[in-house]
Design a protein around this nucleic acid. Structure first.
Lengths: 232, 232
DNA sequence: CGCCCGCTGTGACGCGGGTCACATGGTTAA
DNA sequence: TTAACCATGTGACCCGCGTCACAGCGGGCG
């Protein structure tokens, strides 16, 4: 069987829900609704006022994005199994500011606001974990702001790719197969620039493409570029 | 007298430390060190490994910044009284990624990691507040990323100014008197662009300058520009 | 006083990358 | 098959803003 509990057990040991006491986990799962998503399915929509739940990723991967004032899509992050999404609107009870869609077939757990907060309050340890996750997110965003402001197109795309590398699958596989438009929205570039950069990198042997699949050949190089800029 | 406790009492009612039980506050203050800062004094340095304390702003204002890979300064935010800074390194026990200096004469409270966390754990309510503050920060950063990516120089500078408006002092006063370089580092612009924009806005009556002091005349206009772009 | 240093204004120049336009190829539906 | 659609390649153009260079101006200090 593939009950939520099994899925949780297979996650990283420091993942949020694994921090809970069995009894509390049980109680939380009782009130949570599991849900399966096909690639492209939307689970949270930008602008929703009644965002009374957080989403916990059991398997697959979610894409967090919003459309900016200019009408362009901006992809903020991709969430992996074990991560929590949508808890921000829940914490400050504001409206949803981003849309969350499945990047690939995924299964998630919808945690209703009330029971989620209750469980947290009853388990300070897990609260520290949530705070830690928020802290990481702030750090990650600082990186993106730095990258946006100080680097040219190459390093920015490099950062986007590095953030997409699948840490489970070996050999430079990505979390999913993004279109060039997606990469652009993630890196803050136009689709055309992405296309030109990828061609160049393919020639240099940094990435390769088999069909529509993108493979990272020299991840180290990309990491250096993302951190230090064009000529590392 | 102006003991920390008095200072705290004068802060916004939803501020973090005011959430504590009197006994807990007492205990925390016992282990905290108050500190006075002159404008320009540094209290946290980017790269510090032993960042075992958070900083609570009692009065004045702090500037949070770091120097990017390109050597340019990036200003992430300005902290007002009642806000907490430097808790991120503490939560995930990473190194300090930003430098914190006093923008004006300020008084702060240094909260040692241990007692801070202990107090939080003992008071779930205050933990929720910290989470809320982190959530706000994430939202704010999303805004900055959006602004960086979709807007030209004008709206970006507008956002920087809006973020600097002093909500206490009426009449478009700023938190402090930033140099054009500071504004550039905050908005992600060159010093020269800031200069040109401010001149233009002064002609249009949107801002005014008395000496080195910058005054916001039409804050609403700036807010619109920051949110929707050049021609609002 | 004269000197230096930091902040500020302004012109000229160059280039990175966004935008537009169009071609190609692969995939689905009629 | 043809048509429609989408993702992708690529060239040409253009303009915003960063960079460089320099000038004026306080203000502090020896």
């Amino acid at each position: 069987m593939d009950s939520p509990k099994d899925a949780i057990a297979s996650l990283a040991p420091d993942s949020l829900l694994r921090a809970l006491e069995p009894a509390q986990l049980e109680a939380l799962l009782d009130r949570a609704s599991p849900r399966s998503l096909e690639a492209g399915d939307t689970i949270i929509e930008q602008g929703d006022e009644d965002g009374d739940f957080a989403v916990f990723v059991l398997s697959g991967g979610l894409k967090v994005s919003f459309v900016s004032a200019g009408g362009r899509e901006i992809i903020l992050s991709y969430c992996r199994p074990g991560e929590l999404v949508g808890e921000i609107a829940l914490l400050d009870s504001g409206p949803r500011t981003a849309t969350v869609t499945a990047a690939v077939t995924s299964s998630v757990l919808l945690l209703p606001s009330r029971s989620f907060l209750e469980t947290l309050m009853a388990n300070p340890d897990s609260m520290v974990r949530v705070m830690r996750e928020l802290a990481q997110r702030v750090r990650q965003q600082n990186l993106v702001i730095e990258s946006d402001r100080t680097f040219s197109a190459g390093p920015r795309l490099a950062l986007a790719l590095v953030r997409l590398i699948d840490r489970e699958e070996g050999e430079g596989r990505l979390l999913y197969s993004p279109s060039q438009s997606d990469l652009g929205a993630f890196a803050g570039l136009s689709r055309e620039s992405v296309s030109r950069l990828l061609s160049e990198w393919e020639n240099r042997g940094i990435v390769s493409r088999e069909g529509r699949e993108l493979r990272i050949c020299d991840g180290e190089y990309l990491k250096l570029m993302a951190e230090f800029g064009e000529e590392a």
